[in-house]
Nucleic acid binder design. Structure first.
Length: 496
RNA sequence: GCGGCCGUAGUCUAGCGGUAGGAUUUUGGCCUUCCAAGCCAACGACCCGGGUUCAAAUCCCGGCGGCCGCACCA
């Protein structure tokens, strides 16, 4: 059995995620998060918020999902997400029309559907799978279409959260210091009407993104704090290595800048992302950044660097970094007929800011994290479990009375109350034997379990069990909250 | 969308013409002083529609859905 198959079974039984609207039958590409999964996803988002917003003093917004067509024309999505397609009249296979024609004859598409249809007719191009007659070329759009108001003015569900940040830029800039650089992030749902979504959370029609746009004066492509990360290393697959060995290399932020792979701003975020994903529980030896080849880089971008992760579903891209220059603001200026340039105090001139974008997918991260954290039965444990980091585990700890009787349950409940009041997320259970409950706690990756035993009633102390080695340490109840917070902060998972 | 395989309790699975059996989970009870103990009991399923047949979970057709490959996509 492939790991992802096992993960999917676990997702169903442990309430990580499951198909949306289940009683009506599955519609592929849509998944709900259950109670346990949502706890984890929330924490992945909270960790991002802490590292990419709070720690940096950046700003966060929430923009609307339904987006008028003109906005997405400006962004390029109406064109970019519309593929020219032909359909076989016999077997109904759909094929990209431009790719098909290009593969048959020497041809450069001019963007017109009629041209493609003409070429197909002139050259008698047939269906590649059955040889049947092909339809005229038509546009197939990957955005969810909707209509606003009684007039049903054309609109789409946003295909990315970024555009809401670009359109908010002028106001946010003015209201929050009117100075560059300015960084604005957002967590939210995006939508892509995939033709045939597969691989569960890896390719969804409705998904969650965490995006950050860093606006700066193009003459000053630097970021405060770069010196702190200059020597820090990440794994990266350079363009040369993609031609060569294909093996990622450890490289420092400084070196990435020197080699021209990224500017300081992007290099800074690469380091930050590496830290984020490592803390979130991805295995550093199973992920790497990849500098996209020139032919993969959009025309408006100076450099794109993706984060790729190895999984049983193959290599999954979970983050994209792009130096988008002034493309987005420039296009929105053009389409809205507004001046979106701002005055730069740094160079005493008006500039259209450049943008470095960090775009991360939460659901794909969630899936990769489950795979990388999954642990088979072993000598120490006769059950499968998840080695989640304390930052993303669904609960901070479990509270278990050794027995239900003799006042142990009541004592345990009072400790749960104390923990919850202190902001510690505690899971309580008195069902079944204590060993069984430890196993259950391991199965959803809770890092610590507190056990209330007979000694607790005598001296008001409890044991803390560490998930990863099963060893226990005795702690006074009055020091419990402090102790747990310390363990979490240090990420300590074994007593040792 | 095409092709191959498939659809039985929450999960895994047996049955493949006579209306379902196991494992696990869940619930209640007994028992239990630390790593999925044991015992008793209970709950719980044949994807949907049509056809063939005395009789369909089982055979046939259609639909819906899944997995893999193609295509599409990141």
């Amino acid at each position: 059995m492939e790991l992802h198959e096992r993960i999917y079974e676990l997702a169903l039984t442990r309430s990580f995620f499951y198909p949306s609207n289940e009683p009506y039958g599955q519609v592929s590409g849509f998944y709900d998060y259950g109670p346990t999964g949502w706890q984890i996803k929330r924490r992945l988002q909270a960790l991002w918020r802490r590292m990419f917003i709070q720690e940096e003093g950046f700003l966060e917004v929430e923009s609307s999902i339904v987006t008028p067509e003109i906005v997405l024309k400006a962004s390029g999505h109406v064109e970019e997400f519309t593929d020219p397609v032909v359909e076989c009249e016999k077997c109904h296979t759909k094929v990209r029309a431009d790719h098909l024609v290009e593969s048959k004859i020497e041809f450069k598409w001019d963007g017109k559907l009629e041209t493609l249809t003409a070429k197909i007719r002139d050259n008698e191009i047939k269906c590649p799978s059955c040889g049947g007659r092909l339809s005229d070329a038509f546009a197939s759009n990957l955005m969810f279409h909707t209509g606003i108001g009684a007039g049903q003015e054309t609109a789409y569900l946003r295909p990315e959260t970024a555009q809401g940040i670009f359109t908010a830029f002028p106001r946010v800039f003015r209201n929050h210091g009117a100075k560059l650089p300015l960084a604005v992030g957002q967590i939210g749902r995006s939508f892509r009407n995939e033709i045939s979504p597969r691989r569960s959370l890896v390719r969804m029609r409705e998904f969650t993104q965490m995006e950050l746009e860093y606006f700066f004066n193009p003459k000053i492509p630097t970021i405060e704090g770069f010196e702190r990360v200059r020597e820090k290393k990440i794994r990266i697959l350079t363009r040369e290595e993609q031609e060569g060995s294909g093996a990622p290399k450890w490289m420092s932020a400084g070196e990435i800048v020197e080699r021209g792979i990224a500017n300081e701003i992007m290099a800074y975020f690469l380091v930050k992302e590496w830290e984020y994903y490592t803390i979130a529980g991805l295995a550093p030896d199973a992920m790497w950044f990849r500098h996209l080849r020139a032919d993969e880089t959009p025309h408006y971008s100076r450099s794109n660097v993706d984060l790729e992760v190895e999984t049983s579903h193959g290599i999954v891209e979970i983050a994209g970094n792009a130096y988008r220059t002034d493309y987005d603001l420039g296009r929105h200026a053009q389409f809205s007929k507004k001046d979106l340039s701002v005055f730069s105090e740094e160079t005493k001139e008006k500039v259209v800011p450049h943008v470095v974008e960090v775009s991360m997918g939460v659901d794909r991260l969630f899936f990769c994290m489950l795979e990388h954290s999954f642990r088979e039965k072993s000598e120490g444990k006769d059950w499968e479990w998840f080695d989640f980091s304390p930052f993303v585990a669904p609960y901070d700890l479990c509270v278990f009375p050794l027995m239900k009787k003799d006042g142990l349950r009541e004592k345990a409940e009072s400790i749960v109350l104390m923990m919850r009041e202190a902001g510690v997320e505690a899971f309580f259970s008195d069902a079944g034997s204590i060993g069984r409950r430890y196993a259950k706690a391991d199965e959803i990756g809770v890092p610590y379990a507190i056990t209330i035993d007979y000694q607790t009633l005598e001296d008001d102390s409890v044991t803390i069990r560490f998930r990863n080695d099963g060893k226990q340490e005795r702690v006074a109840v009055e020091k419990l909250v402090e102790k747990i917070k310390k363990l979490k902060k240090e990420g300590k998972l074994v007593l040792g």
